[in-house]
Design a protein around this nucleic acid. Structure first.
Lengths: 345, 345
DNA sequence: CTGTTAGCGCGTTCAG
DNA sequence: CTGAACGCGCTAACAG
């Protein structure tokens, strides 16, 4: 009947009649320990099924080999792709991932951040809740020496580290594609106006039309709060115009899905009466009979991987340079181009 | 220039010229501390922005308020729904979730389990990799006092705690539905034969046909390894039969998606030449023009929540009953009925 | 090459 | 009601 007690280095030391530090060093392959003792220690450790108590090590080393990832939702394909890559990469670097979903609730987001701070994570990757406006926690985390890297939904502040998607390139490609297919009446279903991501899309939309000498029709830009209802209403606004657009770019694929449903309900046909392109490139398109004309891929997995890479750099710097003032403060940004892919039709 | 050092109870004690134990007790609302001192301590703690160092507490209390969740993949809708609920519920109970994806690789799965053991998680929720055959780690974890609850993909062993989906009810309902719509040539695309989940589905399939006095046609049961190729091939086997089935039940929605693509490639029409019902009820069906006739919902979120609930119980017992022999050994199972939902047509 | 000692931050006896 | 002392498991500085 096993006592259930995990063996410790103390136990090993006692049995071998040597000191705990010797055991510790032997187990860590410290060069200054004799080969014989090292072997003896390792052998007994193996026999006893010894495993170091990491909670003790974390405590002592002030390092937990744990990073926190906070996302609005885990069940959105975009985020699960990101977290999947992050977990994968973290794992290969012997880091553990702890998880939190804000559900786009700023309060919840803050609570999670504090929990993670309590757990002494070595760093945090964060795609902030869509309506978070207060970013005071950045300073708090910085003071606690916990580096943060944002991605996807990034606060509009300097001095923050972030992976940002250049949404413009994709928008230009999208409009080029529409135009080259003969579309001139091109509309845009944008997301909430306050989001940087919305602003950037809209700027690019305006620019791209100008490039093709298409005059901007204000009615062709509508907004959704990204709810199902909001998405439907937005597309209906377009459909009810006296001259309705023949092509629509929408904020993301979810919007497009709802929009397409609304289109069909109206008795119109996707890819005949009206064409779509949207951001995100959800994997399901390949299964749809009438997918969008194309998608603007944002590479969530890659964004996640880059964010983790940047985080690792910051963590290292944090350890190396005792004075963490500049390294953490200076916001570095990596821009990842969005790209038109999957000419589905 | 803040030193970046987190304040400790020691610091508070020194400033207040009292002992650390008093501070500790005050912060934990110990009844035996005077109201005045308690207030003074709390006030200063607030000012200094004190936060207890949980790594120290974890270490001392041998409890981390952390549970590990190991899933084959995070990007499958079924699992992201489950993890989403688990995270949610854990969070409300002040637990933290650490994450691992096995990618259906038994070795990787084992490595993750060991990492989590090292992190001294209080318990583990596990949907095992599809081809894991060795479950020795169960004993190891049990000996380490870490309870495990399986769900979804559950090893076929007694003495394991699990949330299992009763796949039979859904299958019966599915076949009832097909029959009542006039289908008699009903086929079944099953998953890998070694999986308990496959066996159960198949048994139910056979039973249900018998209930309707439909004689079993061996050719109408085919298998896939769940890869895209495998799924296609499986449905092609059915389509190439001299008398092809008019209705197909498939292992899950992913299989159905691939199958539908193959059907269309053959020039046949879904929901006309051939009808589908499958397990899982992916949320995307509502956006498809030709969804399956119905879905067998397995309630991933609920399964996750139940698993966590069971895990909490085990953790409590673990703490309460010093002798953890029976409580952990005795496998308890909760069966969740699957249910036909979304008559999409 | 190895042992001794100290201490990480906290909760918890045991004494007052 | 409060303080002094101890120890969780481990590493590291300082002796030999």
């Amino acid at each position: 009947m096993n006592k259930g007690k995990q063996p410790t280095i103390k136990e090993i030391a006692k049995r071998l009649k040597i000191s705990t530090s010797t055991v510790s060093r032997a187990l860590n392959d410290h060069p200054s320990i004799g080969l014989v003792t090292t072997m003896r220690v390792k052998k007994l450790a193996e026999e006893l099924n010894y495993e170091p108590n990491r909670t003790a090590i974390f405590f002592k080393q002030r390092k937990t080999f744990t990073i926190g990832v906070i996302l609005p939702s885990l069940s959105e394909a975009f985020f699960s792709a990101a977290i999947s890559e992050i977990e994968n990469l973290a794992n290969s670097n012997n880091y553990t991932v702890i998880l939190g979903q804000s559900l786009d609730d700023p309060e919840r987001e803050l609570r999670i951040i504090n929990t993670m701070k309590g757990h002494r994570v070595d760093g945090i990757i964060l795609s902030s809740a869509k309506n978070t406006r207060e970013f005071d926690y950045i300073a708090v985390l910085q003071q606690a020496g916990i580096p943060v890297v944002f991605f996807d939904c990034v606060p509009d502040l300097v001095h923050t580290n972030a992976i940002v998607s250049n949404l413009k390139t994709g928008m230009h490609e999208a409009i080029d594609t529409f135009v080259s297919c003969g579309h001139h009446a091109i509309a845009f279903i944008n997301g909430p106006a306050h989001l940087p991501a919305s602003k950037e899309r809209e700027e690019a939309f305006v620019e791209a039309l100008a490039n093709h000498n298409i005059s901007l029709n204000k009615d062709y830009i509508v907004y959704t709060d990204l709810s199902e209802k909001g998405n439907e209403q937005a597309v209906l606004e377009l459909l009810n115009l006296s001259t309705r657009p023949s092509a629509v770019i929408s904020f993301n694929d979810y919007v497009t899905l709802d929009a397409m449903n609304a289109v069909r309900k109206k008795g119109l046909t996707v890819n005949q009466d009206i064409f779509f392109i949207s951001y995100a490139n959800y994997p399901i398109w390949k299964y749809m009979e009438n997918p969008p004309m194309a998608s603007i891929e944002q590479f969530p997995g890659k964004q996640g991987a880059l964010a983790l890479q940047m985080l690792f750099d910051l963590i290292d710097k944090n350890v190396a340079g005792g004075t963490e003032d500049t390294s953490l403060t200076d916001g570095q940004r990596i821009v990842l181009e969005s790209k038109l892919v999957n000419q589905h039709l």
